[in-house]
Design a protein around this nucleic acid. Structure first.
Length: 415
DNA sequence: TCTGGGGTCCTAGGACCC
DNA sequence: TCTGGGGTCCTAGGACCC
């Protein structure tokens, strides 16, 4: 029988930070706020206590009162992760930091440190594949694992292997995770939430009625806030409610594809295989400004940001070894409404100059009268650099030049 | 106190071709 | 002449996920 595990690291970013700053254990700590490595703890420490030899080895000696509190925060950032101590106050991921500050003003606010999280991510994933080679990535802190043919993968429904993996990860990294094992990905994903943190739960087909059907629809991976609200208008609140509806009724109300999927999901059916390999579809960079910007009044600032985003995307493409053919921009107005424009080129590129030119053409097709809060650049229709070069299509590199074209405000904006 | 950044997938209309 | 149908590509928007 198929045995699929979903493994979810417990409060991953926050737990990694606690490894570096063990003195924060048990305290409400929140990661996020859009802060970066620039205002990193060590740099600030050296400024305040220049006589002390601060290094990565004595971070645990940093006095508690040195850590920044959330109450001093001003900005537009959101929370990425919160420790369990902070979650008790109702603070959670994706919440605005300013809102969290009201709920828990004494929480410590740490900047995100992606390099550190990536490092631990690679480490725990390597440990897993040593034990169970069929693993699917689901971002930095989550994976699916196929237990079916792993020795011991069927014992106690997968519990023995899950425990072994938990122990391997904890012994090596000091991090805990929660594991759900079930006949498929859909149920395994739900199961891993049953026993958090540091838990294991086993779900079989027989548990559908008792364990799955009482849950709110929102717990299904793929039912978000919009679908939940629409389901609620039909008095469908739990997965069990959903399962009572006829397949045809769901298709008529939610579309052929989504309706059929809702029906299958509510009955715990999911035949998707574990995907061990995947190719990126697009690569993008975007940024939310500290304050809203205007195409005319803040033209220079916007141009500089636009240039930087294009250069970053180009660098990302080159570093990862891809070229793309569809260049797109995204902007978000002060009303939070987003618009996108894209343009497909005759040939693939990873060149910042070409990306900027195509993106510039796209910018001419949007309303630039309104105030902006976000600008983004995206490259899609990707192809591997080596395949592109094998076709003999690679163009000559053009150096990035200072951006001077009149994109923001010189011409009458097109509305 | 408005709401990050990086993605994937789906839908739907129009162009264009056979 | 007023009208087909399928396939693919392009574009815009939106839901959803981590």
């Amino acid at each position: 029988m198929r045995r699929i595990a979903h493994l979810d690291m417990d409060a991953f970013y926050a737990s990694v930070e606690l490894l570096r700053y063990p003195q924060l254990k048990g305290l409400p700590v929140v990661i996020g706020g859009g802060r970066r490595r620039e205002d990193d703890m060590l740099a600030r420490l050296r400024q305040v206590h220049p006589d002390y030899a601060w290094s990565d080895n004595n971070l645990d000696e940093i006095p508690l009162d040195f850590f920044p509190r959330i109450s001093g925060y001003t900005g537009r950032g959101v929370i990425t992760t919160a420790t369990y101590a902070a979650r008790k106050f109702g603070v959670g991921s994706a919440m605005g930091v300013m809102k969290a500050a009201k709920l828990c003003p004494d929480a410590i606010l740490l900047p995100v440190d992606f390099d550190q999280y990536r490092h631990y991510s690679q480490r725990f994933k390597a440990l897993i594949t040593e034990i169970a080679p069929l693993m699917e990535n689901r971002g930095v802190d989550e994976v699916f694992i196929d237990f079916t043919h792993v020795p011991g993968g069927q014992r106690e429904g997968g519990r023995v292997l899950a425990r072994l993996i938990q122990k391997a990860i904890f012994d090596d990294t000091g991090l805990t995770c929660s594991v759900g094992v079930a006949p498929n990905k859909l149920l395994a994903k739900m199961a891993s939430e049953f026993n958090k943190p540091n838990g294991i739960s086993i779900v079989t087909e027989d548990d559908l009625v008792n364990l799955i059907w009482p849950l709110p629809c929102r717990k299904v991976n793929g039912i978000g806030p919009k679908a939940e609200a629409k389901l609620a208008t039909h008095d469908i609140h739990t997965i069990g409610d959903l399962a009572q509806r006829e397949r045809m009724w769901l298709i008529e109300n939610f579309g052929k594809s989504y309706g059929a999927w809702l029906h299958e999901a509510s009955h715990g059916q999911d035949a998707r295989p574990i995907e061990t390999e995947s190719e990126p579809v697009s690569i993008s960079r975007e940024t939310t400004f500290e304050r809203d910007l205007h195409a005319v009044h803040d033209r220079e600032a916007l141009s500089a940001i636009f240039t930087r985003l294009c250069a970053q995307v180009a660098a990302d493409l080159q570093r990862k070894g891809y070229v793309g053919k569809t260049i797109g921009i995204k902007l978000r107005y002060d009303t939070f409404q987003s618009v996108t424009r894209d343009q497909t080129l005759a040939d693939h590129t990873h060149n910042a100059q070409q990306i900027r030119e195509a993106g510039g053409q796209c910018l001419k097709r949007v309303d630039l009268q309104r105030r902006l809060r976000l600008l983004g650049v995206r490259v899609g229709s990707l192809m591997k650099l080596e395949d592109w070069q094998a076709q003999g299509l690679s163009a000559q590199e053009t150096p990035i030049q200072p951006y001077t074209a009149s994109l923001f405000g010189d011409e009458p904006p097109q509305t």
